[in-house]
Amino acid sequence: MRIRCPLCGERDRREYYYQGDALALNRPDADTSDHEWDDYVHNRINPVGQTRDLWQHSGGCGAWLIVSRDTVSHEVFSVELAKARQEGTQ
């Protein structure tokens, strides 16, 4: 599997650290219900097919990336900077 970092270009999967589902970016408010925290910290859709997850280009520029890919074929559809997504510039 190869992932194209928007800053560095296409690199081997080994340069990246996998964090998990990109829902990690949607941290709930501190006083939200146990149920919502449970969904945020533990519960996952865990799809067969297209998924969005969070990777860090740890062996490169260090940027956090949102990678959209297929969990069966390992095809990578798109990669975007998590920062850009959070700042709403993309």
Partner: peptide, 13 residues
Amino acid sequence: DFYASYAQRGNLP
């Protein structure tokens, strides 16, 4: 292999 997958086969790394 360290990332979510249903491939039932592994990668080279």
